[in-house]
Design a binder for these strands. Structure first.
Lengths: 198, 198
DNA sequence: CCAGTACCGTACCGTACGGTACGCTCGATA
DNA sequence: TATCGAGCGTACCGTACGGTACGGTACTGG
């Protein structure tokens, strides 16, 4: 689809960052005319919104159903979530996109921040909570409020990483560090919420 | 000092957010001429940098020395840190300032992000770590790496709050909620790192 | 072969904003 | 009182950028 190539061009420009994200730059990069951009997306905000949604549509793949859990598979699920979340938030694309959305949230109009939140933080919450609840049903976890439990998990996984990246720190984690970080976070989470028979 | 009144005007504009943060707006708000702004701060970046530093200079009050700790005072110290950190990051000023700094970090030049990090995340880290180490010396805590322990504490306290605020969610915590949140975070931290004789 | 459509490239317009210039006032010093 | 510097208000300049207009081209359906 041609239009998605345009959105990929926007993403590429965001990530490179060197160039200003102007409509001219996008048109040049995507080899299309500005008039077409305005025809397809209305205005600059529309283009940004479409880009954010386009990226979001690629991130959360399948919502796998959760069946019976034992301690091992619970741990694996949590580990997977932690790894994929860390991988996302440390990616240059996510950092660039979040920067745009944060900047936009300051001068309201359109709602990039809301979209990013809905497809990031909240989407993963909705995917993790069923797993936590299944863990509780299996007697592996103990908590009253799955939202609160998830937020603790979120904090243990992300810690200060996202804000440091957003504020411009270099800080690149390789796959190994991410795996170790995720493992530590899962261990800590299980230490806090795990039941004896885990 | 007149110059600080100018910086307060900048902060006020940032917080209100409605108006664009232009040099004209600052001059109008501070009842001074643009020429004076340029004389004092060089350019727009200089003004923003000075504003960030001015705000930073007010935040971290005294670095109290840590003497002998028992379980109760350790808990109190951690609780204080958690409360003050949550209070800071949920303040409208902090949110506005971090938005500016994040946006700036995208299109490098000057280093607002670095300044904010140094006076926020890292400053509190340097204040908390001695307390953690004193707790370890007193046999109340067990950890190998105080930086890692602090980062866990940071994650347990902040969780998803800062990113949600930066992305524009309303989410206002009152003093009571902050106190409860801080208490939960400290409990969890002590559950992970506390020693039996605490 | 013709009409219509979709789109590219480029030129153009209006405006907002960073930065500069300048005249005026006012308080301090001699 | 004369001089001087600091700084206010305003007007101004240049440019970058969002948004529009338009001519030219290639493809599609009849």
């Amino acid at each position: 689809m041609r239009q998605q190539a345009v959105l990929d061009a926007v993403l590429a420009l965001m990530v490179e960052g060197g160039e200003q994200l102007t409509m001219d730059a996008v048109a040049r990069r995507a080899s299309c005319s500005k008039e077409t951009l305005y025809k397809w997306y209305g205005d600059r905000d529309g283009l940004l919104t479409a880009t954010v949604q386009w990226q979001a549509s690629r991130v959360h793949a399948g919502r796998e159903t959760v069946q019976a859990l034992d301690g091992t598979t619970l741990r694996e699920h949590l580990q997977d979530f932690a790894v994929s979340w860390l991988t996302v938030i440390t990616s240059r694309t996510s950092v660039a996109l979040n920067r745009i959305a944060v900047a936009h949230a300051g001068s309201r109009k359109s709602n990039l921040g809301g979209i990013v939140l809905a497809n990031g933080r909240f989407a993963i919450g909705e995917r993790v909570k069923p797993v936590l609840e299944a863990g509780r049903a299996a007697g592996l976890l103990a908590f009253a409020d799955s939202e609160a439990a998830f937020r603790t998990f979120f904090g243990l996984v992300g810690r200060d990483i996202q804000i440091r990246l957003l504020l411009g720190e270099a800080l690149d984690l390789d796959a190994d560090e991410i795996r170790r970080d995720a493992g530590r976070a899962v261990d800590q989470f299980l230490a806090l919420y795990g039941q004896a028979n885990a």
